[in-house]
Structures are given as C-alpha cells and as structure tokens.
C-alpha cells in the first residue's frame, strides 16, 4: 500500500519539488530582469527627456516640420516626450523578452522565436495605424472646414464621416498586415463601407428629394439672392 502511495503521490511530488527548486532561480532571474527593465525604461525615459530638452529637440523638430505634422494629426504632446516614451517602451519590451527567454522553457522559446519573426508585421501595422490616425484627423478637419465654408448644415457629420472612414481603412490595412482574418476584414470593410454609402444615397434620395428639388429650382430659376460683394 505504501509503495503504491509512494509511486502515485510522493515520487511525482518530489520530482515536482526538485524541478521547482531547479526552476526557482530562473523565475527569480526572469522577475529581476523584468523589474530591471521597467526601472531602466523609466530612467531612460526621464534621462532622454532631459537630454532632448537640453538640446532643444522640440525647437529643431518644429523647424523641420515634425511638430506641425503631429499637430496636423491632432497630437498635442511635445515631440521630445513622444520620442523618450518610445525609447523607454522599447527598452522595457526588450528586457521582457530577455526575461522570458531566461526561463529556459523550450515551448516559450519557440513562441518567442515566432513572436520575434512576427514583430516586423506589428511594426508595420503600428506605422499604418499611426499615419492612418494622422491622415484621418487631417482630412476630417479639412472636410469639416470646407463643408462649413460651403454652408452645409451637415458639416459636422461630413467631417466625422471622413475621419472615421479613413481611420477604419487604416485599421483594416493594419489587421490585414497582421494576418488577422485577411479576406474577411477586407470584405467586411467593403460591405460596411458600401452599405453606409448605399444607405446614405437612399436616405438622401428619399429624405432630400424636396431639398434637391428646391435647390435645383433655385439654381435654374435664379431665385436665390446672391451677394454682389467684391471681397478684394
């Protein structure tokens, strides 16, 4: 009876304890590396921020038009802060990878290898999102201002529609880059976008029939009183 208990319970438990004892230093090392990464990342971020301030990076970037580009995209934070944060995060992520690899688990090693090979896709997807965000804000604002200057009552909706459409397009492209539901997402986007356009066309056609009629009548018959003001 005691032999059976030894074989079923105590021997596996002993082996588990042995492995745990062997593995514990790796876990501690990994945790230490991870913590060191966070601390170093924060320190690097703070040091770089001070350095960038000291070398007047924000003024330089303003001169080269980077700040204008960021502002065009609706990003108000200083370029120095964005860059120092980026470097801080790169360091933290690097330490996290080293920490996980220090566990010496073949399965995790394989996953990490795949992850590292996959990283360029993530980078490109992030770039697409980054520029998509800029472009959507920029073109959304341009559409809004143009619509207001044309006197269109739906200016706000037009601006939002343009912004959302471009950002959705960027998200679709980013997901495609990541290989997530490749065809499905493109088809879904096409269906949603086509559906929205069709819905708007039908809504405009039915709801705006009278408006369009009045507008055309005014245009053709010259009923609308225009300004003769010469601005220059």
């Amino acid at each position: 009876m005691s032999d059976i208990l030894d074989k079923i319970l105590f021997e596996p438990f002993d082996r588990f304890v042995d492995r745990l004892v062997q593995f514990l230093p790796d876990i501690l090392t990994a945790a230490l590396i991870f913590l060191a990464g966070i601390v170093l990342g924060l320190i690097l971020r703070s040091l770089l921020l001070r350095f960038f301030h000291a070398v007047n990076l924000d003024k330089f970037s303003e001169r080269f038009g980077t700040v204008e580009m960021l502002k065009k995209g609706g990003v108000q934070e200083p370029f120095s802060l964005i860059l120092s944060r980026l470097f801080g995060w790169i360091l933290i992520i690097s330490f996290s990878i080293i920490s996980v690899r220090s566990l010496n688990i073949p399965a995790i090693d394989q996953i990490l290898q795949k992850f590292i090979l996959y990283l360029p896709n993530i980078f490109v997807a992030l770039l697409i999102l980054f520029f998509g965000y800029f472009l959507s804000n920029f073109l959304g604002r341009a559409a809004l201002i143009a619509a207001v200057n044309a006197g269109l009552a739906l200016s706000g909706s037009i601006g939002k529609f343009v912004r959302l459409t471009i950002f959705l397009l960027a998200v679709t492209m980013a997901l495609e880059q990541l290989g997530i539901g490749k065809e499905t997402i493109v088809i879904a986007f096409a269906i949603v976008f086509g559906g929205v356009v069709l819905a708007l066309s039908i809504a405009f056609g039915l709801g705006g029939k009278e408006v369009a009629k009045n507008y055309l009548e005014k245009k053709l018959e010259g009923e609308e009183k225009k300004d003769d003001i010469s601005h220059l």
Binding site: I145, V148, G151, D227, D228, S230
Partner: peptide, 24 residues
C-alpha cells in the same frame, strides 16, 4: 453701382462656423 447683400445667409454661415469650428 448698388451692391446686393444677403445678410441672412451671411449670419447663417457665421453661426454654422461657430457651431462646428469653435473647438478648433
């Protein structure tokens, strides 16, 4: 020569601008 002015339309455009562009 007299100059024709559509004051209502001008005020409407101004108000639309305030409604939509004030955050800018």
């Amino acid at each position: 020569e007299p100059v024709s002015v559509n004051l209502d339309r001008m005020i409407d455009k101004f108000r639309l601008g305030i409604k939509e562009l004030l955050p800018i």
